[in-house]
Amino acid sequence: MIELKNVSKTFQTASNSVEAVRDVSLTIEKGDIYGIIGLSGAGKSTLVRCINFLERPTGGQVLFDGVNLAQLDRRALGKTRKSMSMIFQSFNLLSQRTALKNICYPLEISKIPRDRAVEKARQLLKLVGLADRENAYPSQLSGGQQQRVAIARALATDPQVLLCDEATSALDPNTTRSILALLRDINQKLGVTIVVITHEMKVVEQICNKVAVMEAGQIVECGPVRDVFLAPKSTVARDLILPKNEAVQKIDDGPLLRLVFDGQSAFSPVLSNLILECRTPVNILQANTQNIGGKMFGQMILQLPNNSASCARVRTYLTEQKIQYSEEDADQC
């Protein structure tokens, strides 16, 4: 549905040029909730603006349903943008209009008659759970409510794609969860393809089916969330899944193993069994569990005793039990 081919964006300033996006290629299929994750300054926001041409790429192509956006004139581009709505970190509602009138705004742009626009806006307010606040101004709404109005506004033109630029970054964890649940609902009920820009792994875990990890303007890895989460290849992806500030301290010289539990093994007492079977004490340096697409996943970093015989027993046991593991360097994790 959306295809980026070698997209680059360079900003020229008086003294130098900044390559915000470098040679990015990715394909977003219809119905996807596609996460683009990266740290601040990785070029995510510029990339998402290249998708709807708010920023014109300086290289490469953006294809929307096979149409090259660069070849559209102003009017045709405007029409295309109506099927690619966007929501923002700072909501960007019109401060001098009520919630209802804000949702009417894109319909006014599309020259929809007033009464039909109001009717549609009311339906959308109901969809986002704010039917009783239609006359409230943005200043009278909480952050989460403002984002709901922004989502309703984005849906007014019946878009095929919803681009979310850090849509939950200004919200608290509970509100974030409810907004994400709303986005997933919209994806499932209305079939809207969603692109989510975020710096938070938990956003990707909660709603995305695919993810691309960005660093310094480039995509360093991408694929189904499960794969990237279970076996992150890039340092950034590891940092995002296991943040650096929680980095483990190696206690003595024993080797480190990173165990990954998938949906099944996350519930069985793997570690207790391992210790009993191998008669080897292990040290848990870090552990967590996450819910990805409704399945539980866990990972754990273990330190084994500095004794090759017992290490070998543990590795054999893990292989027999079909538990994924990888060797880790202390300074990497």
């Binding site: 708010l54 405007g78 700072s90 960007n92």
Partner: peptide, 14 residues
Amino acid sequence: NAGVIEAAESMGAT
């Protein structure tokens, strides 16, 4: 607010 203008542009406003 520049964001509001950007939002309008993203909706295809002239």
